[in-house]
């Protein structure tokens, strides 16, 4: 693995990779839309209100929830609050640094947040304790422990799994604990452009060779809830339409297999 996110990959290896992908095969033997092995450990952090560790190949992330009482936003007195944040920990990669979040971390957080929020996975109107005064606030903290590509999908999987397991600590206010009501299961599928092909779930090396990234988040209603073109590069309309179709197909399979 290169030591730097901007590391130069040799032209020979890059061309070999592109040539191989043109023929439908990736250097690690996967087909173009094939994900690496996914391992999800539910309730990995018992102290959290919901949690999951997701390993996507060598990419490793942990999502943990805290659910606390707080004040609603002024403009939505009858809705609870969800806040989602991704930390790219310095241990995860040689060039990640401690300190305020990088542009990369902020973009990833916002894309993952949008997919979950817009799919209406969480019905925030059911999180009100006293209208305008007190609501349940769901803090979704996701730590990236090892970075080997495709943070967005790993983090979405982790967050969605953690939310599905979440328990609201009603006993703290004299009620019963209850499961967080969940209405949808959004799945993000991120694709990268390598040569003229789109591949799913790029590893780090593939990310470095790619020219453009596109994420499409779809829930079981088949509707698109978030999209993001990222990194330098361009996509044709046909490629975007193909990306939506792929996200729908692959997303359904991932949901079926990992998020039931």
């Amino acid at each position: 693995m290169p030591m730097d996110s901007n590391a130069v990959i040799s032209e020979i290896r890059k061309n070999f990779m592109l040539e191989s992908i043109k023929n439908g095969k990736r250097l690690d033997g996967r087909s173009l839309d094939e994900y690496r092995e996914i391992k999800i450990t539910e309730n990995f952090i018992p102290k959290a209100a919901g949690s999951a560790m997701v390993e996507l190949g060598n990419t490793k992330v942990v999502a943990g929830l805290k659910i606390e009482q707080g004040e609603p936003f002024e403009d939505s007195p009858d809705n609870g609050v969800m806040l989602l944040n991704i930390e790219l920990l310095p241990m995860a990669f040689p060039t990640f640094e401690s300190g305020p979040p990088s542009e990369q971390a902020v973009e990833y957080s916002r894309v993952v947040d949008r997919g979950i929020r817009e799919s209406k996975m969480i019905d925030t109107s059911k999180l009100v304790i006293e209208s305008g005064k007190t609501v349940w606030m769901i803090f979704v903290d996701i730590d990236v422990l090892n970075y080997d590509g495709n943070i967005i999908d790993a983090c979405t999987l982790a967050a969605v799994t953690a939310l599905k397991n979440a328990v609201i600590p009603g006993s703290k206010i004299g009620q019963k604990d209850f499961k967080l009501p969940v209405n949808a299961t959004p799945v993000s599928v991120t694709m990268w452009k390598l040569g003229d092909e789109l591949i799913c779930d790029a590893n780090l090396e593939e990310e470095q060779v790619s020219s453009g990234r596109i994420t499409v988040t779809i829930s079981e209603d088949g509707h698109i809830h978030a999209m993001q073109k990222g990194e330098v590069g361009e996509f044709s309309l046909e490629e975007i339409q193909k990306a939506i179709k792929t996200s729908s197909d692959i997303g359904n399979k991932l949901r079926e297999k990992y998020l039931r």
């Binding site: 817009e118 209406k120 698109i224 999209m227 361009e234 309309l237």
Partner: peptide, 26 residues
């Protein structure tokens, strides 16, 4: 987009649209 080639260089979406609605918007 880059108008000469029609290639897309920025694209974001948030909300709730079907594939057909997306194409209509585009």
């Amino acid at each position: 987009i880059l108008p000469r080639t029609g290639k897309v260089v920025l694209l974001q979406l948030d909300g709730n649209v079907s594939y057909e609605e997306f194409n209509e918007a585009v």
